[in-house]
Nucleic acid binder design. Structure first.
Lengths: 215, 215, 215, 215
DNA sequence: GATGAATGAGGATTCATTCAT
DNA sequence: AATGAATGAATCCTCATTCAT
């Protein structure tokens, strides 16, 4: 009931040196990695986007891999924080799926790249996931299952189906951002406008209400 | 009522020469492209997987790009066929969402790579989509909307929300296959077994029933 | 008395493909490695010397390291063969130090680079020695000691000094070739002319006679 | 009899600034250059060994080249001093080969890196030798020859062979230190222990006695 | 149809060096 | 005196592609 602190430390971005430049590199890298994936992104592109020469990147990150890791960790921190909050005992928003949806949508609405990064990571089988992130994801998975089995979802779905419902919600949320650019191009309508995002959020809340009936 | 032919030709794989070898190359390429994306896949890997040297690939495909296109077209043909069937006037399964789900799941269950290819393509904004495929996808989108607005979904959702419902279904279907490898690794449970696939199909049918109520 | 075959196979140069080009690469590499050592030699130089572009080198050798290894193995084979002959039981020149000196000098006289390669290798502590070469060198060392303890050297030197005598001979032989370029530059006299080599060979034979008295 | 000053100034280490730090840099550089040669040594390694960042090295030495030169000059000073003493008219140890051997061995025994530096320099043809050092080495060579032709060696060897004898002695002395690390690795016995050094010194004295008979 | 060889373009990374602080 | 940041030049290596065989 009281707001207990989250049980494990949030991953922090190990900004090696020079705050500002490193941040700008991370921003550029996040955009490119989320657009083109790891191997589709070149340091040349990153450097150009920041306005540096390639070797300068190495003053801030030890390698392309570790730049990627830093991007993931910086980006996932907040998202995982929200999820963790949702799952943690003692958190006041524990189990409040509607609220998670709202917060996650707000977050991803501002940084849609994160969603795309997740999808890239998913496709590559998480091979490049930091140990740090792995350590975060595993318990979240575990507690999500644990909770779903006792929460409102259990009223509507039998046990073995619950993971499928959780996965489904995850894909609906993340996929929206992943498909936005293609949707714009093929369809002409922009999923990333404020109103479109609001509509999707409302839709998700309704979905939550349908899939996890409170009563 | 009778099975009218689909209204436009299915994309065919342009097997330049050597039937069997070309097929084997496509198989290898499909596996690798779906795992690592376009830029993450090298012709070296493809050749090795087929048991050829790299230059031999050029006896069958003009370039890496066109190999990729061939993979997409060969793979998407059947899927688009099913969708097209679902949407075409005169098709006996027109509008039968449950049946589409079953057929798509059966198809992707056997070739889960296709789902992952779609996701890769989505993320890259469809930049590498063949004109052929673009010509397929656009009308499908269009007719899907058209139909949804008059079909059973319209009973449950107001007009502006219908695209979101369609997108959601799409992401749930495709995402399942995309996340399978990661799920196996992080979670230890295999989403690709026959029984897991059957369970997901059932779940999807229930979802369809919920989101697109027949009555 | 009869010429028994050497007891272990001579290291052969694993010429991956394309005989002639690979040989030319090896020649160029041998010259450069012996002049500038491993890290002082660039593939750019090697390629230029052969008249190729850098990537072509990779059609013949997997890496700079493996090119270096191939150079060593190709070069050392004959030298180690002579030594092995000298040490092997059953060889008719077994223990005939004078003859080894002659043969080694003839060999190195034609390929003085080898001597310099040995010295480079020595200085770097043999870190880059192929397992193959290590397997050759160890037994040669061992048998050299073994033999020296019972051969003519034992008449002149007590046991603990024998390794020092052997090392000394080795350094006199190898050092001659190693210092030749510097000697030419600082001193103006060329140690690599036929007559200079003959003189050194004679000198070495006299040294052998002094250090390993036959009687 | 009286200790006449050496006829030209000993090379001194040009410590630009910061006595102690410069010395530490020189020590680190000497160790690395002698182990890996000039091009195999990076300023990063040197800096790391001293516990500084790379740019700090530039507060003490103008460039990698000049650091190398400083290492050579600092190291060779004493050695050349001994040789010069040996050769200088008026020096009390003039022509006393046994004594030179003892002093050189004592010196190199404490700083075996110097020997290895010499060998590296030799192999690279002395391209990086300071003008200062060149000015030292040339006259030493000259006087060595001059003296050998009139000294005890002349009793044993005819004139044209004398340079070979001198070279041989040089290689035996220097090679011992150069091969020590490899010898340790391949053979397990350490040539750098006090007793091993003493044994080698004794051996060298015996060699001197043999090659340059006093009577 | 298969492949050894060659290569232009480019990829990540290292290195010595400079400069402002 | 020390160093974070920046960088031109170069290093090893990979990639897609071509071509002669």
């Amino acid at each position: 009931m009281t707001t207990t602190p989250v049980s494990f430390a949030l991953p922090t971005v190990p900004l090696r040196k020079g705050e500002s430049t490193a941040q700008r590199i991370l921003d550029a890298a996040e955009a490119l990695f989320s657009e083109r994936g790891f191997s589709g992104t070149t340091l040349r592109d990153v450097a150009a986007r920041v306005g540096l020469r390639i070797p300068s990147l190495y003053n801030h990150f030890a390698s392309k891999e570790s730049l990627y890791a830093a991007v993931l960790e910086r980006g996932f921190g907040p998202v995982l924080g929200v999820l963790s909050d949702f799952l943690d005992e003692g958190s006041e928003s524990r189990g409040d799926a509607t609220r998670v949806v709202e917060r996650v949508m707000a977050l991803l609405g501002q940084r849609p790249n994160l969603a795309r990064l997740v999808v890239h990571e998913t496709l590559s089988g998480g091979q490049r996931l930091t140990p740090l992130l792995r350590n975060w994801i595993a318990p979240i998975f575990a507690r999500a299952h644990e909770m779903a089995e006792t929460g409102p979802a259990a009223r509507r779905w039998d046990a073995e189906r619950i993971p499928l419902v959780v996965l489904a919600m995850y894909h609906v949320v993340v996929g929206y951002f992943a498909i936005a650019p293609l949707y714009l191009e093929l369809n002409g309508s922009n999923l990333m406008t404020t109103s479109a995002l609001a509509r999707q959020t409302e839709f998700l809340k309704e979905l939550v209400a349908t899939l996890f009936p409170e009563e």
